[in-house]
Amino acid sequence: MSRVCSIRGSRVRVGGKIHRSGLAKKKGGIGRHVTKVNKRTVSPNLHVKRIYVPELGRYVKLKLSAKAIKTINKNGAFSVLKKAGLI
């Protein structure tokens, strides 16, 4: 199953983690040097939630990011789902 938020479309991002070696000059070394850049993935904070929509009178099961859950709490389930095109 894909790691994508149903509301916001947040997905796994790929970036780089800089690997440094050496001792800092402040600590008596000759300085820090970048030796390589490692690939890493940053996953969204996803949760599978059952949300009750009173306008429809039923539950809807969605995969949501934490930010999308906050948006639903603030604006209401029906309006957010309608704007996202899920209803």
Rank of each mutant, 00 (worst) to 15 (best):
S2P: 09
S2F: 08
R3P: 02
R3L: 15
V4E: 12
C5N: 01
C5M: 01
S6N: 13
S6Q: 09
S6C: 14
I7Y: 01
R8E: 14
R13D: 10
R13C: 10
V14P: 07
G15N: 13
G16P: 06
G16W: 00
H19W: 09
H19C: 00
S21A: 06
G22Y: 09
K26E: 11
K27F: 10
G28W: 09
G28H: 07
G29I: 11
I30T: 12
G31D: 13
G31P: 01
R32T: 13
R32G: 05
H33D: 04
V34G: 01
V34E: 11
T35F: 14
T35D: 14
K36V: 07
K36W: 14
V37K: 14
V37N: 11
K39E: 11
R40T: 10
T41H: 12
N45C: 03
N45V: 05
L46G: 00
V48G: 05
V48C: 10
Y52H: 08
P54R: 08
P54E: 05
E55W: 08
E55D: 05
L56G: 14
R58G: 00
Y59S: 10
Y59V: 06
V60E: 15
K61M: 05
L62A: 03
K63E: 03
K63M: 04
A66F: 04
K67V: 10
K67I: 09
I69C: 05
K70G: 12
K70E: 12
T71M: 12
I72Y: 04
N73Y: 01
N73T: 07
N75G: 00
G76D: 06
A77H: 04
S79T: 13
S79M: 10
S79K: 12
K83E: 12
A84M: 02
A84I: 01
A84T: 03
G85L: 09
L86G: 09
L86M: 03
I87W: 07
